[in-house]
Amino acid sequence: MAAYDLVIFDCDGTLVDSELANNAAFCDELAAEGLTQYTLDYAMTHFVGSSVPTLMKLIADETGHVFPDDFRDRYIRNVSRRIPTDIRPIEHAYETIEIVSKIVPVCVASNGERMNVIDCVKAINAMDVFFTEETIFTKDQVEHPKPAPDLFLYAAAQMGNVPPERCLVIEDSKFGARAGVAAGMDVLGFTGSSHDKLGRAAELSAERVIAVIDDLRDILDYLPD
């Protein structure tokens, strides 16, 4: 069994079951721009794990649409309104983080908007218990978001210059898994959130993760006793 010096959790779809709410918010704001062809079903198939700036560029390239300067802020506010009612913890998230954090340091690395990620960590009562703002890393802190390896490498550096081969990443999306593998880290694919478990299991396996799990407690099988 590999020994790790750091476990890096994604947030959306890994610690919180939020991908549906996030993509609904994104589709709401696209519809306000007249881009109604991007349905929620389409978003859940094609957008999960991508960053908002990446998606805005993709859609601009596809449609020629010019996004207003306040689009991202509108999206952030839309997600914030949904957090109290539409976002819930992944089952066993709190207890798993509690156990893992006693074995090895933990942090979060997310493609999400920073304010939303912090609010989601607060929503599962993990803020200032297992994570702080200094151990939550988001795409705005690096030049290239996932699927580039930058964010995971940055997180490992900030957490004490942990070598990539000593890091274990927990990811629910193909883009995140691809980023972790590109960073030279071991990646566990996670399918325990509510959306498209079978489809994501196949996608994650294709990204050369070391295993696919659907229960966060299974992380403990990959850590020393």
Rank of each mutant, 00 (worst) to 15 (best):
I103A: 13
E95L: 10
I59L: 06
I99S: 11
A177I: 09
I103G: 07
I76L: 03
A31R: 15
T96V: 14
V100Y: 10
I87Y: 00
L6I: 04
P53T: 02
A43R: 10
H65G: 06
N78T: 06
L216N: 04
T45E: 14
I76T: 05
L198N: 14
N125G: 10
E91K: 00
L198V: 14
M1T: 08
M56H: 12
S194W: 00
E134S: 14
Y42W: 15
L151Q: 04
P53I: 05
Y154E: 13
G189W: 01
T14D: 10
C120R: 11
Y38P: 05
Y222P: 03
H65A: 11
P163N: 04
T45I: 15
A32V: 12
A148Y: 10
H65D: 04
G192I: 02
Y75H: 09
S18K: 01
T45P: 09
C27W: 00
G189H: 04
M127D: 07
H65K: 12
L188P: 09
R166G: 09
A155T: 05
M159R: 15
N23K: 02
D150R: 06
S193Q: 00
F175Q: 08
H46T: 10
L223V: 05
I97G: 02
H92T: 04
P89M: 07
L204V: 04
D221Y: 12
L168F: 07
I8W: 09
S193V: 03
P164L: 15
P89Y: 01
G160H: 09
D70P: 05
D61H: 08
H144F: 11
E207V: 10
R72N: 08
V108Q: 09
Q37L: 13
L30Y: 01
V121N: 09
D28L: 00
R72W: 05
F131L: 02
T36R: 12
M127T: 06
T135D: 08
K122F: 03
V209L: 06
K122I: 06
A31S: 15
R74M: 07
I118S: 01
S101L: 08
N125W: 08
D28K: 10
V129K: 12
A201H: 04
E33K: 14
L35Q: 15
Y4V: 08
M56A: 12
Q37P: 06
L6A: 08
E33P: 06
T45F: 12
I118G: 00
P224L: 03
H65I: 12
I8P: 09
L204T: 01
C167N: 10
P84H: 09
D119M: 12
P105Q: 15
M127N: 07
D140T: 02
A148S: 02
V169R: 13
R88G: 10
A179P: 04
D69I: 15
L15T: 13
F67W: 09
L188V: 10
L6R: 08
